[in-house]
């Protein structure tokens, strides 16, 4: 074990964790909107909309995230018409390519989580609310939404952790996140074990924080 290396690389890796966190947060937020949209599509009566949402979720959950990033980053850059369009401004940037891949991936998993959460809402509850003379709006916000959140919290916590781990793949498209910086340090020191152990510890700490956040929220929505 090279203690010196551990001490000198820690600050570099910590500052890189800001990029990891940024990637994670933005992807989770966009993923949440995508997930909500597609979860609603899944409940649509229109068979095409339903199938489209199902196909989206199936494709993005059935293929490795690495494949998705590579198709978006290296693959799309091959299309001349795309490079001549305004979309290239976004796709030119590895940062946005990574965010697009992560968001689409997270959106697929989130849509599944939300869909099953919506399904747990039983019509009886709405009936009960109505018979008590509570307005639809209040039923929705005060009864349905909290129950759905409570139902989906554990699964969503898992999704957050999966996504956080997924951001390590940003390093494959030149981004300097924790894994990217770790690989850079290794490329000059040739000591992978030490550096990866520190990088791993930072990820583990993030997992720990996410877990506790979820526990806190579970308490809040427990009734």
């Amino acid at each position: 074990m090279d203690i010196d290396l551990i001490i000198t690389s820690l600050p570099k890796l910590l500052s890189a964790s800001l990029i990891t966190l940024k990637l994670l947060l933005i992807s989770l937020i966009i993923g949440m909107f995508l997930g909500l949209f597609f979860a609603i599509c899944r409940m649509s009566k229109n068979i095409f909309i339903k199938q489209f949402a199902y196909g989206y979720s199936y494709i993005f959950r059935g293929t490795p995230l690495l494949v998705q990033i590579f198709i978006i980053y290296f693959g799309l850059a091959q299309l001349e018409w795309l490079k001549n369009s305004f979309l290239w401004i976004i796709l030119k940037d590895p940062y946005w390519c990574a965010i697009i891949a992560f968001s689409l991936n997270s959106g697929a998993y989130t849509s599944e989580i939300l869909r099953s959460a919506f399904q747990t809402i039983k019509p009886g509850m709405i009936e009960a609310g109505k018979s008590l003379g509570i307005s639809n709006k209040i039923i929705f916000y005060k009864i349905q939404i909290p129950i759905a959140i409570r139902q989906s919290l554990p699964a969503y916590g898992n999704e957050m952790i999966l996504m956080m781990k997924g951001t390590s793949l940003a390093s494959t498209v030149t981004l300097m996140d924790i894994t990217g910086v770790a690989q850079k340090i290794i490329s000059t020191t040739f000591k992978p074990i030490e550096v990866f152990i520190i990088a791993g510890s930072i990820y583990l700490f993030m997992t720990f924080c996410i877990n506790n956040l979820i526990k806190l929220l579970e308490k809040k929505y427990n009734f």
Partner: peptide, 17 residues
């Protein structure tokens, strides 16, 4: 901007990144 392989550097050079 650094890449895992030279092949990927070549791809991104021609892609215009």
């Amino acid at each position: 901007q650094t890449y895992k392989t030279q092949d990927e550097v070549n791809l991104d050079l021609t892609a215009g990144r």
